[in-house]
Design a protein around this nucleic acid. Sequence first.
DNA 1: TTGACATATTCCTATATCGGTATATGATTT
DNA 2: AAATCATATACCGATATAGGAATATGTCAA
Lengths: 117, 117
Amino acid sequence: MARAATTADTFNAVAEPRRRLILDVLAGGERPVNDLVRELGLAQPQVSKHLRVLREVGAVEVRERGRQRLYRLNGPALKPIHDWVKNYESLWSERFDQLDVVLEELKQKEEGDVSDE
Amino acid sequence: MARAATTADTFNAVAEPRRRLILDVLAGGERPVNDLVRELGLAQPQVSKHLRVLREVGAVEVRERGRQRLYRLNGPALKPIHDWVKNYESLWSERFDQLDVVLEELKQKEEGDVSDE
DNA sequence: TTGACATATTCCTATATCGGTATATGATTT
DNA sequence: AAATCATATACCGATATAGGAATATGTCAA
């Protein structure tokens, strides 16, 4: 068996940095392919290929306008990634550090409060 | 050129579902390899190989205890993923939907407030 | 209808993966 | 010292990439 297809899920699709860049640009609004080509400095066929992968995992959607194809972001496709990684946020976030402090204080208080000792 | 190495960065390392499972187990605390083998029902060599990838991108760290190797999570290695994907959170979050409502209300109010018309 | 434009697809090659199996390495127990 | 345990590595085969270049498809303009 080989590595999972890039189209297997959003995790795989988005592991490629240039595909993340494409999504970042599309976050600014709908764009025709050539805009992406210009903005990212990639060759046109590669952009089309990346867009195909992103479309297959549902991260983008297309619309036709004359000879152009307008691509737009479909954000919710990225939710599984966010859902997974957000569980680890406490391991680096300042805010959670401070939460730790608060919890520690509560614990101290409680220890002074224990009745049966 | 081929696809980027799984060890190229955390995005690539974590695209493999079993590696995410390993991290999820390690989130519960340090574990020797055989614990992971049992808990995940994978073959021992595959687990060792996945752990190697995770170690190379800094997502886990090892410690020796006799003949065992104790692996532990290194959470902050996942921060780049969180940082990237959190910018898209507004595209599906309920909370942000409600923020939209509030902003809309403010806008209405302001329109009724405009002085020069 | 011919040419220009916008995008998609095809073909090529190099490479890195994944699982499976066998084996190597090193520590511990008997 | 030998057997056992815990883990890592090597080897194999199948497969799916990614970029580059060429070309196909379809639309609009002259």
